[in-house]
C-alpha cells in the first residue's frame, strides 16, 4: 500500500515519464480510496496547465510544437 507521499511522487512523475504498469495500478488503487491524493493529482495537473498557459503568454512556441495552445501573435 502506497503512503500518500509516495502516491504524490507517482502523481508528479506521471507528468515527466510513463509510469510502469505496476506503479500505475498502485497509484489507481490509492487514488480510489484517498480524496486528498485525488485533489493533489488535480493540483499538479493544474500546475502543468498553468505553466503551459504561462509559456503561451510570455513566449512563442516553436513551430509544430504539439503542446502549443492557440495561435501566434501575428
Amino acid at each position: 500500500m502506497l503512503s500518500c507521499r509516495q502516491a504524490t511522487e507517482f502523481i508528479s512523475q506521471a507528468l515527466d515519464r510513463a509510469l510502469t504498469m505496476r506503479e500505475h495500478s498502485a497509484l489507481l488503487v490509492h487514488l480510489a480510496i484517498c480524496k486528498g491524493c485525488r485533489a493533489t493529482s488535480g493540483h499538479m495537473q493544474f500546475l502543468r496547465r498553468a505553466a503551459l498557459a504561462w509559456r503561451g503568454k510570455h513566449s512563442v512556441p516553436p513551430p509544430n510544437d504539439e503542446h502549443s495552445h492557440g495561435h501566434g501573435k501575428d
Binding site: 503512503s3 500518500c4 507521499r5 509516495q6 484517498c34 480524496k35 486528498g36 491524493c37 485525488r38 485533489a39 493533489t40 488535480g42 493540483h43 493544474f46
Partner: peptide, 12 residues
C-alpha cells in the same frame, strides 16, 4: 510521521 496527509488537500 507515516507519510499520510495531516490535512487532506481539497480540490481547488
Amino acid at each position: 510521521g507515516v507519510d499520510h496527509w495531516i490535512d487532506h488537500p481539497a480540490a481547488w
